[in-house]
Nucleic acid binder design. Structure first.
Lengths: 332, 332
DNA sequence: CTGAAAGCGCTTACAG
DNA sequence: CTGAAAGCGCTTACAG
């Protein structure tokens, strides 16, 4: 049988209340008693049972994370990096991380949230699918929520985002500065807020430089490598673009694949700026210029925000916007 | 106040025992009562409190996962893919996944395990660091453990591995078949079992082809991109290798970076086979040949194994070895 | 300053 | 076939 608080109480010759108060620093205990309790705990090798603790205190010391990773196999680095950042913060606060994946599927997402509701988490960090965009206030349980990467406009809650609009603006402006005037854009699905914002950045850059927005230069893809491949081909064949801004990582990979297979030279035949900065972007030929999102920092910030909200629920709604910088390499 | 089992019992006019037995199917309940209970639950929107449940039943419906991901930012895809596989299995069984990262640091790893011990998990899946290799039997709590990717020889437990020896053998044999005789090898740290096995595969292939093993063609790195970069340079300068087998993904990236920066042509100047199959391997020039590890499948298998062990602890120790295939592309 | 006791919301022997 | 009651291991009012 594992040793419990009553064993410690007997061993130390005090009440369980006192043991508990020593453990949790929840009321004054005389130095002498404190010492006796500590020694008893050490002698017995006592570890509090967190489940009993949770039941009574109504705190789980656990937070949930729901990410939308679609691909089965070579999964999306971005959210792993986010998760890593979150975990590093939680760990030092003694919190645990429950990981779940909505697979970018709104139906799955609701199931995952419900699983968490039932599981008593102290807080949730979620990168929502488009399904959450409207009117699901009732979905979440009685815990604070921090939205990351994407913000469902209809929901209240803290958020940590990356300024994709400015990022996209920078990319397109850089292409314009190089003299490009027919700049294609391959963006993700418009029901996802990040896609809309990046598209908006594309438009604003054009407008700032006095270039008319032309629908025939724009393609929307489902954020898969395949769609990037396909749409790059379309854009090159149908509209004589001299540069391409691809607002998503998987689609950037698809574009590279198409260009390579068709022996289209970057940046001579076409200039290229992609999205998200992974290590491989450096050693493709030429190295790929990208808009970099600070994924690890985003995770850290989200975790910190959630923990502070858990400690003090009276805070006003908080938000943090990270900047997305242009990493210039040889592709434009 | 949230609705609890006693509310349902009153609403249905039965005992809490009966409600519990309906929920858990744990003893016969007459059809009529069952119906009354079900209806009462629906009317009240009852959800069992999993914490109370865990406390009494001593089951958490949660399993832990500890991965060793070192890099802060662009983290290792392999383990994310594994985690994805695990999560997909757990989800359909109603289990939750607690994620933790040892950062490849044995001290951190022990802390993470202890956090889990204290947290009442029903099982643990762990890719151990070298620190676990010997004599830490006492470390784990009273739950089954499945080792993945690496197996500490001194510990008993189920395991799911990838046959890195055969994988490495295949890579080196393929290079030998092409006529290469001076084949360099860049391997990971020898205190990690996967590194040793891949190295062993390298040696066996050489020996099979009657080529003497030559220490000056071998370098050991710390599995970082930087070490791959550095060691590739060393090997090319110091020993006239015509081919390179790089037994780790991050180091493969480093090698590519070095070769690119120094304008060394693959496969003409040097043939190359790397490790782990990510999407980008296809669109570097030339596309990188690799040994592919079935990461997602590995996660699925590990989760299945753990769940079956949780259900029935009398099983004999189980193990599963996945094959690692050679994906042939243009780099050799 | 500390203790005795209630109670968190379930499951599970024990009775009948 | 079902219920009354104990108990999982803590924390937290309530007393003094």
């Amino acid at each position: 049988m594992t040793v419990k608080i009553s064993d410690v109480a007997i061993e130390a010759g005090v009440s369980t209340a006192t043991v508990s108060n020593v453990i949790n620093n929840t009321r004054y205990v005389s130095v002498e008693m404190k010492q006796r309790v500590t020694e008893a705990m050490n002698r017995l090798g006592y570890m509090p049972n967190p489940v009993a603790r949770s039941l009574r205190s109504r705190k789980s010391n656990t937070i949930g994370l729901i990410v939308p990773i679609k691909t089965r196999d070579n999964a999306d680095n971005f959210y792993l990096s986010v998760a890593n950042g979150i975990e590093s913060v939680l760990k030092s606060s003694g919190y645990h991380l429950l990981l779940s994946n909505s697979q970018e599927d709104p139906v799955e997402e609701i199931k995952r949230i419900q699983m968490f509701n039932t599981q008593r988490i102290d807080g949730l960090i979620i990168a929502p699918t488009c399904g959450l965009c409207s009117g699901n206030e009732e979905l979440f349980g009685d815990y604070p929520v921090v939205f990351i990467d994407r913000k469902p406009s209809a929901l209240v809650g803290d958020w940590v985002l990356v300024d994709g609009m400015k990022g996209a603006y920078r990319a397109v402006a850089a292409l314009l500065d190089k003299g490009h005037r027919r700049i294609g854009c391959i963006a993700g699905l418009m029901d996802i807020s990040t896609s809309r914002e990046r598209m908006e950045g594309y438009r604003r850059a054009l407008s700032q430089y006095g270039i008319a927005y032309c629908e025939s230069l724009v393609r929307i893809g489902d954020m898969s490598l395949e769609s990037g491949y396909e749409l790059t081909g379309q854009l090159l064949k149908e509209s004589r673009v001299t540069a391409l801004f691809i607002a998503n990582n998987a689609m950037s990979r698809g574009a590279l694949k198409y260009l390579k297979e068709n022996q289209i030279k970057v940046p001579d035949d076409i200039a290229l700026i992609g999205f998200d900065d992974y290590e491989w972007t450096e050693f493709v030929s030429p190295a790929l210029s990208v808009i970099r999102q600070p994924s690890n920092e985003l995770g850290i910030k989200a975790a910190e925000m959630l923990l502070s909200r858990i400690k003090n629920d009276n805070l006003e709604t908080q938000g943090h916007m990270f900047d997305a910088e242009l990493v210039v390499r040889g592709s434009f």
